[in-house]
Design a protein around this nucleic acid. Structure first.
Ligand SMILES: Nc1ccn([C@H]2C[C@H](O)[C@@H](COP(=O)(O)OP(=O)(O)OP(=O)(O)O)O2)c(=O)n1
Ligand SMILES: [Mg+2]
Ligand SMILES: [Mg+2]
Length: 666
DNA sequence: ATCCTCCCCTAC
DNA sequence: TAAGGTAGGGGAGGAT
């Protein structure tokens, strides 16, 4: 659908869609309607056409059979008390699946006087523990400063004998997967930039945990019959030409708010260094390990839990208002376009955040500015200020860690805190001088009140807090608390609280799940959902997901509050303003574009001290019946073409990309 | 049973 | 003008 104004025509389409009998005819006659990203971008009115999955992958399947050597990712902790010191000076990092588990190894090493590191870093880690390792990973580990690379038995045996055994006898298997297929090796030459890039990708400096380097590319491939696309290209002209601007990828990321919130986690480790410093702790790792230890200790406490969910109110908008008080009290939205420009009334700039004044007119994140202006002609828009949001987030996260031992930062503007077992506050930083008790309900209330006050005092932005007996309850409570409030759901109230919500309000149940519940299980309300048996849900959603929904609608959740761990994958995607046509020139542009994205991934991997064990690429091709994208220069309705392969040698990557770019040419 | 890959879905 | 990214959970279905 064209845009938000298209509600009526959307309905129109629904009607004619259902009026046609044969699906193939429908697909021919009706333009494809994209899956909505937001409930109000027309999605609830439009039809999502579940079209038969046309797997193009059989086209490549004959040529690649990717496989993954193994994986690593580790996040651990520091807890047990030291009982000996023979491992003193050993800085251990565990990567991937191990026997015994990462948690056990962590405990063992700490008890023996060593130190544990959640993140791998060439600077601090002396011993790298893994069960198996790809050649590429091994090579990169060996390129850095000398560290010991050992299997888990080294730790176990050393502990057993109470001495540090020689590392040499505990070599790691250079693992191969019997299912690994040899990639078709194409000698046909690639553009040289592609080659350079491959190298960069395959051998970053050091190795992090299980890191799956992902290189995604979205190509909207204009086909012969896609006159509409050509038209869009023409209209966008040179100004928007995606592939002509050599800095397109960088520019795009610099402006993208979804990139900003999506890449928060990539910046988190660095951010925690800053937080640790503000709290007078020696390092971000020390802070993190303390939080992990607390989590592990609390795990064995089978008492009623006290979980808080803290979420900033209208975050981006609040930040803007905090530095420009003249905006306070007005309806404010954050987006690229300006509400005072003469073009504002036609603006398809997407709103990122709307303050509560704006929301009272029905304005929501994800809407176009022009729609917001229809709802409220005097709404003020402000541009993005990502640095400001990051600064505010850092202050908030610092406060959270000063107040509580166990913190899980979930995004740039929200976090969970588990207070179970914490009996005083604050726990870190200067204010430790005056320690208060945290035992009764009213102590918790006081804790929350003070936390909210401090956040507002230090940032000029307000936060809301939900209190519950699990993460789900706390999260639902926050929603109720907003804006600028606090709400507690008592343990025995949780179930009845959920009963008064709409299914769509339940976290984890999104647009598609709601749709399935309605069409396949005839369920529209939480009350009806509650009547479904576990089995019925499992039949539709699978064994695990079925139980999750079943528990969720009863207000139950086992999810633990856990400090943010290292990422398991790194990727870069651009799905805006990308158009490639047929022919050699366009093909070469597409290849250059893939390369620039791959370089972006390589940069990010290097920054994270990560090496990939797998590469994947994804292309989007406009469906032949796709209409104009709903969003200006957006991706519209596309087929996805993807492939991945494990990386043992750099040239695999090269051949992979070679193949993939060929596919994109098609 | 468990481990893959490929894919869908969700949330900020 | 406008910047629809990112990462994780999990299922289906095939291979081991
Ligand atoms: N579709 C969205 C949703 C969110 N965000 C950004 C802007 C938000 O300010 C920030 C935090 O998201 P929240 O869901 O927490 O929304 P707000 O903080 O804006 O409002 P609320 O008071 O409901 O938390 O993420 C965005 O850019 N696009
Ligand atoms: Mg918020
Ligand atoms: Mg939030």
């Amino acid at each position: 659908m064209e845009d938000f104004d298209g509600e009526e025509s959307g309905e129109d389409r629904v009607a004619s869609f259902f009026g046609v009998g044969d699906e193939r005819v429908k697909n021919k006659k009706k333009r494809e309607i994209e899956q909505p990203r937001y409930d109000w971008d027309g999605g609830d009115f439009g039809v999502y056409m579940k079209e038969k999955q046309r797997k193009l992958h059989d086209q490549f399947a004959a040529q690649f059979k990717p496989s993954d050597p193994v994986v690593k990712e580790g996040n651990q902790s520091q807890d047990a008390t030291r009982s000996s010191t023979f491992m003193h000076g050993v800085h251990l990092h565990v990567s991937g699946w191990t026997q015994p588990s990462r948690e056990t190894l962590r405990e063992l090493i700490i008890k023996a006087g060593g130190e544990y590191h959640t993140y791998y870093s060439t600077k601090s880690v002396t011993h790298f523990v893994a069960t198996s390792l790809s050649h590429a990973r091994m090579k990169s580990l060996n390129e850095g400063p000398k560290i010991f690379i050992v299997n888990p038995d080294w730790v176990v045996d050393s502990i057993q004998q109470q001495r540090r055994l020689p590392e040499a006898k505990y070599r790691i298997n250079l693992g191969t997967d019997s299912r690994q297929h040899t990639l078709a090796f194409h000698t046909s030459t690639l553009q040289s930039p592609t080659k350079e890039k491959n190298k960069a990708d395959a051998f970053p400096e050091a190795n992090e945990d299980e890191v799956d380097v992902q290189d995604e590319l979205i190509v909207d491939d204009t086909n012969n019959d896609a006159a509409i696309k050509l038209d869009a290209m023409r209209r966008s002209g040179k100004l928007l030409s995606t592939s002509e601007n050599v800095n397109f990828v960088k520019d795009f990321f610099a402006q993208s708010r979804l990139h900003f919130i999506g890449s928060f986690r990539a910046r988190y480790e660095q951010l925690m260094e800053n937080v640790a410093e503000r709290l007078g702790m020696k390092s971000g790792n020390a802070l993190l390990q303390d939080s992990v230890t607390c989590q592990e200790q609390g795990e064995h406490m089978f008492v009623e839990r006290i979980v808080l969910h803290i979420d900033m109110d209208a975050f981006f908008a609040s930040c803007a208002i905090s530095v420009d008080p003249s905006l306070r009290g007005h309806p404010v939205v954050v987006c690229h376009s300006s509400s005072t420009s003469s073009h504002a009334v036609t603006s398809r700039g997407e709103i990122s955040a709307a303050n509560y004044e704006a929301r009272s007119y029905g304005i929501r994140a994800g809407m176009f500015l022009k729609t917001a202006l229809q709802m409220c002609p005097h709404v003020k828009s402000v541009p993005y200020d990502f640095e400001l949001y990051e600064k505010v987030a850092t202050k908030v996260i610092t406060l959270l860690h000063a107040f509580a031992r166990l913190v899980e930062v979930r995004s740039v503007d929200e976090a969970y805190i588990d207070l179970t077992g914490q009996d005083t506050w604050p726990v870190r930083g200067k204010e430790m001088k005056e320690v208060k008790p945290l035992k009764t309900k009213s102590d918790v209330d006081e804790f929350c009140r003070e936390l909210r006050n401090r956040i507002e005092a230090e940032t000029g932005c307000t936060a809301s807090i939900g209190i519950g007996s699990n993460k789900l309850a706390a999260r639902l409570a926050t929603k109720k608390a907003k804006p600028n409030g606090i709400y507690r759901i008592l343990p025995d109230e949780t179930e009845s609280f959920v009963a008064q919500l709409k299914i769509r309000d339940l976290p984890g149940i999104g647009y598609r799940t709601c749709e399935k519940l309605e069409t396949e299980l005839r369920v529209k309300t939480t009350e009806q959902l509650r009547k479904l048996s576990k089995t019925a849900l499992q039949n539709v959603f699978g064994a695990n997901a079925g139980v999750l929904i079943y528990e969720c609608v009863r207000g139950r959740s086992n999810e633990k509050v856990i400090p943010l761990a290292a990422r398991k994958s790194i990727s870069a995607t651009v799905g805006w303003g990308v158009r490639f046509g047929a022919g050699d020139t366009e093909y070469n542009k597409a290849v250059r574009f893939v390369v620039s994205l791959a370089e972006e991934v390589a940069d990010r991997a290097r920054q994270a001290d990560a090496v990939g064990s797998r590469v994947s690429v994804e292309l989007l091709k406009a469906k032949s019946n796709a209409g104009e994208p709903y969003k200006l220069l957006g991706q519209g309705s596309c087929d996805r073409i993807r492939s991945s392969a494990s990386i043992l040698f750099a040239h695999n990557q090269e051949s992979l990309r070679n193949e993939l770019t060929k596919v994109c040419e098609r």
